[in-house]
């Protein structure tokens, strides 16, 4: 069974929704990314999504784009990203997931990527610009052993959600809103309705909600309709303005994590 799914299930059984945090590899600096990741995992994150920086990410808002830009200037590569993930999988018994655009993976070589990711004990991959239509050609059978996590959005039909669920492993990434990554000041009522619908439809996998979530209130709002939540831009934004002990970031993770306890 998928390590990710098992992990989320265990948390759910203990009365907790899973908290997954997205961080950009090599950000804010190459030398302190691992410290940041450790702080995040120690402060209550149950899983970590490590972003693979890309120059032209389509699904990302200004905050994540800025972090990618900085990480690339810091000299971050996919190879270094996988190395960092490996360090974290050795230190923490929590799933580490790689997330990013298709092209750096294509350029690295998909076979090499899978081999390196498995050796690093990475649990899964999220590549938002590879939708169901391109799934077979892109992942083929090469990704055996790695959970491929696909995304649903409010524009996905029920039929598509079912296909996405069947092709995914670990969890289905339910995008809360129509749009790119970034903090939302409010969520509309149909957002909740749509998430409820998706949660009912996803059956094979666990379901995590991401995009726009920034504070404990959001976690409380979504908790009844998911197995966990994902926070990215809000954390990256806090890191951008934080001191070198990441005190504000740790506080944010702590309150988000507390909100995950039901």
């Amino acid at each position: 069974m998928s390590k990710i799914k098992e992990h989320i299930e265990k948390l759910n059984r203990s009365g907790r929704k899973a908290l997954s945090i997205f961080l950009t590899a090599g950000f804010p600096k190459e030398e302190n990314f691992l410290d940041l990741a450790r702080y995040v995992l120690e402060s209550g994150a149950d899983m970590l999504e490590v972003g693979i920086p890309f120059s032209d990410s389509l699904a990302d808002g200004p905050v994540v784009q800025q972090s990618y830009h900085t990480a690339l200037q810091n000299g971050t590569t996919l190879e270094k990203t996988i190395k960092a993930a490996e360090t974290l999988t050795k230190e923490f018994d929590k799933p580490i997931i790689l997330m990013g655009s298709a092209n750096p993976v294509v350029r690295f070589g998909k076979e090499y990527f899978v081999k390196a990711a498995l050796e690093a004990k990475v649990s899964g991959v999220i590549i938002p610009d590879v939708p169901v239509e391109e799934y077979d050609g892109f992942f083929e059978n090469k990704f055996n052993g790695l959970d491929t996590i696909l995304l649903t959005t409010p524009t996905s039909s029920e039929k598509r959600i079912k296909t996405i669920d069947s092709k995914s492993g670990g969890f289905v990434y339910c995008v809360s809103v129509v749009g790119i990554t970034g903090v939302r000041n409010e969520f509309k009522e149909d957002t909740i309705k749509n998430i409820e619908r998706t949660y009912k439809t996803v059956s094979k996998n666990k379901m995590m909600i991401g995009f726009g979530i920034s504070k404990p209130e959001n976690v409380k709002t979504f908790s009844p309709f998911c197995d966990g939540v994902i926070v990215g831009s809000a954390v990256i934004k806090t890191v951008m303005n934080d001191n070198n002990k990441f005190e504000e970031t740790r506080k944010l993770i702590k309150i988000l994590s507390d909100a995950c306890n039901q």
């Binding site: 590879v130 939708p131 169901v132 239509e133 959005t153």
Partner: peptide, 20 residues
């Protein structure tokens, strides 16, 4: 029918756009 010219082309976009 998949929008491929040989191996080129396709629909490599976020899920949000697929329905459109």
């Amino acid at each position: 029918e998949k929008g491929k010219f040989g191996v080129y082309g396709g629909k490599f976009v976020p899920e949000t756009l697929m329905t459109a």
